[in-house]
Every structure is written in structure tokens, then in C-alpha cells.
Design a protein around this nucleic acid. Structure first.
Lengths: 339, 339
DNA sequence: CTGAAAGCGCTTACAG
DNA sequence: CTGAAAGCGCTTACAG
């Protein structure tokens, strides 16, 4: 059987209270007593029962990560960018001594209540592109219940959420300015722009700003909606090509979209970057290995994971949360290199 | 404040025991009473406190996933194959009504005890390539303590583990036979073969079998060690090329290795598949987008995740675990298509 | 079908 | 510095 603190108390000849204190390194316990107790605990392979501890202390030392995807996405292929975020969040949690509960969510579920209300987690991290209008109610509900949660993504002003996200507008502008520098004058933008997709919309906004500052017109017909998959990028680009729209540069709202776009371009006999320059967004591992390698705006997932966890933890500790906008970094590779 | 079962009992005019039964859909409770109780619970936004339930029932309805990587790997870039496994395991868990605790592990840690001993998880899933000789002791220890755990990977006969894994030997043979069919006679194998890397060793074994059955010699100098990263595949291939070793086909022990190898090959002015055919293993998303697209042996991660969870659950339920070898599927793409 | 009661294994005031 | 005791919120025999 598993050892309990009573077993240790018995062997050490002290009370169970003292064992509990000693194991938590309470300064109230005599040095020698503590050492003795800890030695016995180790010998018996004792581990504090987390359920008992959590029940008693009313906190779980656990965070929950809720990941949701665009509904159109194949279930087994999670967006690599989020996967990378998942990795950094996991590490950030373990650095802070917290456990991480991971769950993929369907919009319909009761996720907004499940973890926090049942005391399984002290706070929630929300990750995923998604239709904000769809789950605004749930966010409001979460907030009303006093649940601690943070979200990765674009800042949304009308929702009660603390967001940590990349600077979409800045990154979009940066990329477009880069394309302009490389001589592009007529750029396509592939990615859904709507209120429901604030990340992509932000990137498009930055794109527009750069064009306007360069004295160029924003051509609506050069923008095509697409969710963040290779396939959607491919199809959207195909449709643009089919319509006979011409362009000398292409901005994929995500790397996945850009990679799909490159496939469509190459299938049509176009050469990258000779005929069309292409840029993406995120800097997923695939961007490096694409042929040609893809220029992109890197989002620092390691930093983002750490900020998400740190912010959530400080909210739990009672501080006021603060939304953070992380600068993106332009990574130039062959796909936009005309020289 | 959060509602408890006593609050509901009070409002419903019944005892707390009855509330508990009603909420668990016990047949012992009168239909009407149950409905009334459930309605009140919903109204109060009541959720069972998991810590209390778990403490009382001595089970957590939670599984822990422990992921560890080759030490040489950059922390922020998790092997995409494992990431994909993580996705399928998450889904399989939620299908079975279990929560999933995720953790990245350093070999030095006490992971072998942490989760199960502290009652945070009912069972453990081990995922990752790694040096088996390093953690044999921990596995033995886990086993001795009666902890329920399963592992993804090659079957290892001398360790007390239930393994679910792809058929490495079969897949290796399949790929090599395919290369033979395409006319290769002189194939390099990039990937570490040692007792500590049973997956890669299995693939190499299948490779050898195919060669022998075709009446060809196995040339030791055509094999170079490499861990599962793009960089390692690149370096290993570079070194082979530098030694002046020639070959007409290349077998990367993983897709990541194969992709790195293709980069080295292309840098040396070789064309794929005209000069050298290349195959990998796993079928990660990147394999599709590589230029040329990579032929590979697909491991069914969705099935694997489900099997891992199902097996672990049945172990917890008391059944004898059974090791499963999953067949791999040959996916031919441009990188090995000479026609 | 229902209720009173024990107890899961801790943490932490309270008293000394 | 230490111990006796209460209590976190449930589940589940036990008795009716």
C-alpha cells in the first residue's frame, strides 16, 4: 500500500501534523526532526496525495490549456504553430512548478466551466484561432464566475480577456514593407479578414498601412479568404489565378497558407521568387524546409508561453492582468529574395 | 462562493447523499427526485469538486503523458511526429472521459514516481525516443510499484513494459524493397543504430533483410549515425558525401533525417530523385511539403493514440496488457519516383 | 428509494 | 517547536 503521512509519523515517533510541516519545509519544524522525517519519507517512497492536499488547500497547482481549432481542420493535424505554443507552455508551467492539463475543445462543450469550477485547475489558458463571436458568451461567463484565464491572440477590446499575442499589425506591415523593398507593387493577400478572425485581420491591416504609406492602392480583389491550412491557401490561390488576377507578391496570412499558395503558384508554372515573391507569418518549422524557404514574421513562441503562464499565475495571485503585444521578427529567406 | 452538494441538498429538501447519487445517475434515486436535483445543480452552476471526488474514490480519471526527447534536441522544437501523437492521445483521452496531464521530462527527474504516486493520474503514457539503457531502472521501479503505464515505441523484450509501436522492421523492409523496385542497388542509411535506439535499429534491420533477400551485400560504410533532427540528417549526409562514398538511394531513419539529407544532397548539386532516391519514416506533415515530396512509411498516429489509451485503461481496469505492433503504410511520393 | 455517518489524506488555525 | 482537532467536499457501505 501507499504510505501516508500517518505511517511516517508513526515511524518517526512524531505527530502527523509535524510530518506535514516537515515535508513542506516549514520553518516551524526542528532541523533534526525535519531531516529524520524527510529521510523516512524518501525511504518509504512517500508522495503527498495531491487530491488531499488540493482539497484541503483549495488550490490545485495545475493549469488547464484549452486548444481549439477552426472547425474546417482535419482533427489529426493540429496547426503546427499551436503545437509549438503547446510545447513552450508546457515548459513554462513546469518551470513554475505547475502541472498542465491539456484538452482539445469543441465549441459546444462546457469547457468554460469544467476545469476551474471543479477545482481541477487554478486557471485556464485559451489557445486557438476561432470565431470569437461564437464564444464571446462563454468568455463573459468565465469572467463573471471569477475564473482566471488568459488567451493567446490578438487583443479584442470588447471582451473581458487578458490577451498575449504577437503584433499582427506590426508584423503585417513589416512583411509588406519588405516586399515593397524587393520591388513588389501588386500584392495578393490570402487569409480570412473578418471580425471573427482578428489575427488575420490585424495582419491585413498592417499590409494596408504599408501600402498606403507607399502611396499604393489597396485592391480588394487581391484579397481572398482562407483559414489557416495548407489546403485552404492552395485553393484560394488557385481561385485567384483562375480569375486571371495578376500579382508580383503574395502575403499568406499564415505560413501554412503561404506554403499552400506556393504549391498553387508552382503548379501554374510560376517560379518563386522570380515571378512572384511569397511571405508567410509565424515561422513554423516547415517554413525553413519549404522550397523555396519561406520568408516570414516570427512569433516568439517560447516567450509567449512564458508570458501566458506568468500572467495567469500573477492573476491567480491577485494582480491585475496586463495585455501584452509581442513584436514579431522579420525572417527573410529565399521566397522573397530577388537578388 | 462555489456551490457544494450540501447547498443543493438544502434547496432540494433532501440529504446530501441523495444529491451525490442523483448527480452520478445512480439508479437508486427516484426519477423525479433526480430531475429536480439536476435542475438545481444546473441552476447553481454546480460542478463536482474533483479533488474531493478523487480523494474519496481513490482514482483520478486522469492520465499523464510524459514526453522526453533526445538530449541533443532544441527545447522549443519538439519532434513533429510526437506532437502529432500528442494530439491523437489528447483526443483519445477525451473520448474516454479522461483528462490528460502533459509533461516534458528530463531524464534526471523523479517522473517515475511523481504522478501516479501522488494520485494525480491513474496511469502513465511514455512517449519519446530515448536511450533505453538510461531509464531501464526507472521503468523497473515503476513496474515494481504497480504503476500502470504503457509506452509508444519498439518492443523491448527485457523490460517490463507494454509497448504500442509501429512495425519498424516491416516498414524498413517495405521502404527498401520499394527503393530496389525503383532500381537502387547501393543505398545509404542515415540514423543511429544501437541498442539504445531500438526504433531506428528495427528499421535498419528491415533494410538489411530486404537487401539480403535481393541478394545484395550490406555495406557498413553506407550507414551513418544521426539522431532524429533535420540538422543531424544534414550533417550525417554531408559527412558521407565528404568521404566520397557514393550511393543511388538514401534511407533516412525518420522524415526529419531524410529532409536534412535532401538538403545536403541538393547543396552538393545532386538532384532528387534523378541522382539519388530518398525515403523517410513517419509521414510527418512536412514530408508532404518537402521539395521533392518525401516517400515514407506512415505510422498511424490516430490509431496509435487510441491504442495507447485503450490499453492503459484496460490495464487500470485489471486486464493483462498486450503489446501491439502496428503495420506501417508505404506512401510513395516524388522523392523516390524515377519514372 | 433515502438518510446518517464514516472516512479518503491532507493543511492549518489553535493551544500549549 | 509540537500535538490534538477540525474540516476541505465528496462517495459509499450500512441501516432502514
Amino acid at each position: 500500500m501507499k504510505a501516508t503521512s500517518f505511517d511516517i509519523a508513526y515511524r518517526a515517533g512524531v505527530s502527523q501534523s509535524t510530518v506535514s510541516r516537515a515535508l513542506r519545509n516549514s520553518p516551524l519544524v526542528n532541523e533534526e526532526t525535519r531531516k529524520k522525517i524527510q529521510a523516512i519519507a524518501k525511504e518509504l517512497n512517500y508522495k503527498v496525495d495531491k487530491n488531499a492536499r488540493n482539497l484541503r488547500s483549495q488550490q490545485s497547482n495545475t493549469l488547464a490549456l484549452l486548444l481549439f481549432e477552426d472547425p474546417g481542420v482535419d482533427e489529426s493535424q493540429i496547426n503546427p504553430f499551436f503545437l509549438s505554443m503547446l510545447g513552450s507552455i508546457t515548459r513554462a508551467c513546469s518551470n513554475s512548478g505547475y502541472d498542465l492539463l491539456v484538452s482539445f475543445q469543441e465549441m459546444e462543450n462546457d469547457w468554460h466551466a469544467e476545469y476551474a469550477d471543479s477545482n481541477k485547475a487554478d486557471g485556464i489558458i485559451l489557445l486557438g484561432y476561432g470565431d470569437y463571436t461564437d464564444y464571446r458568451d462563454k468568455l463573459v461567463h468565465l469572467h463573471q464566475q471569477g475564473t482566471h484565464f488568459v488567451r493567446f491572440g490578438a487583443e479584442v477590446t470588447d471582451m473581458p480577456v487578458t490577451s498575449i499575442g504577437g503584433d499582427n499589425v506590426g508584423g503585417g506591415k513589416q512583411l509588406t514593407e519588405h516586399l515593397l523593398t524587393q520591388g513588389c507593387r501588386n500584392m495578393a493577400f490570402i487569409g480570412t479578414i473578418s471580425e471573427a478572425a482578428p489575427e488575420f485581420s490585424g495582419r491585413y491591416k498592417g499590409h494596408q498601412q504599408a501600402l498606403e504609406e507607399a502611396g499604393l492602392n489597396v485592391e480588394p480583389k487581391l484579397q481572398v479568404n482562407a483559414i489557416s491550412t495548407e489546403e485552404a491557401g492552395y485553393q484560394a490561390t488557385k481561385s485567384l489565378l483562375a480569375k486571371g488576377v495578376t500579382f508580383d507578391g503574395l502575403f499568406g496570412a499564415s505560413d501554412l497558407i503561404a506554403i499552400g499558395a506556393m504549391r498553387a503558384l508552382q503548379e501554374s508554372g510560376l517560379t518563386i521568387p522570380d515571378d512572384v515573391l511569397v511571405v508567410g507569418f509565424d515561422d513554423i518549422p516547415m517554413a525553413t524546409f519549404a522550397k523555396p524557404a519561406l520568408t516570414t514574421a516570427k512569433q516568439d513562441t517560447v516567450l509567449a508561453g512564458q508570458l501566458l503562464v506568468d500572467n495567469l499565475l500573477s492573476m491567480i495571485a491577485g494582480s491585475k492582468p496586463k495585455t501584452v503585444l509581442m513584436p514579431t521578427q522579420l525572417i527573410t529567406r529565399e521566397s522573397s529574395n530577388r537578388l
